[in-house]
Each structure stands twice: as C-alpha cells, then as structure tokens.
C-alpha cells in the first residue's frame, strides 16, 4: 500500500448490529431480565458491536469510501448485519 505524505488520519467509530428482521437473542434475554426486575417493559433491546480505529485518506470523501468498504466487507455480513457510522473525523 502506498501512503502518500499528503494523507490525513481519520478516527472512525462504527457500530455493527443484527438487521431488524434477525432475532437478536441476546437482546431479547436482556429484555426479559429488565422486565423480570421490574425496570422496564418492552425495552426493545438490541445488541451490537462497537469498533473504533484509524484510517488514512487524502480527504474526508475518500476516508468515507474506505470506511464503507471496511464496514461492508470486513466488519459485517450483509445477510444478517447492518452497520452504522457513528463518527468520522480528522485526527489533528
């Protein structure tokens, strides 16, 4: 990989979770627990995985492109998972 000097560093934060039509068994078990403890009913609890990492790119647009590639191809499986970019900002 060629890293040009003009490259900037970006900090990315991403959440990968199960798609809405996939039963989130872990989430459901937390739901049940919240109900059992009389804390909350029908909390609609969903779980996911949080990732934070650094990417280098020439500008914000190409950083976004790279980030989308990482999310869709590496961090998630589109059959069952979706991802959400929480944050992408330049590291100063």
């Amino acid at each position: 990989m060629i890293i040009l000097k003009s490259m900037k560093n970006y900090a990315a934060k991403v959440i990968v979770s199960l798609r809405d039509d996939v039963k989130d068994t872990q989430g459901l078990s937390v739901d049940k627990m919240l109900k059992r403890l009389n804390i909350e009913e029908n909390a609609n609890f969903r779980t996911g995985k949080f990732y934070s990492f650094k990417i280098s790119a020439q500008n914000l647009d190409s950083a976004k492109e790279k980030l989308n590639f990482i999310c869709s191809e590496i961090l998630s499986n589109k059959v069952v998972e979706k991802y959400e970019i929480i944050d992408l900002k330049e590291l100063k």
């Binding site: 039963k23 068994t25 872990q26 069952v80």
Partner: peptide
C-alpha cells in the same frame, strides 16, 4: 446462501 448466527440458547 444465508448466514450462521449465535444459537438461541446463547
């Protein structure tokens, strides 16, 4: 096709 995810019993 498809995917394999965590067992219902966790």
């Amino acid at each position: 096709p498809g995917a394999l995810i965590e067992n219902d019993c966790l």
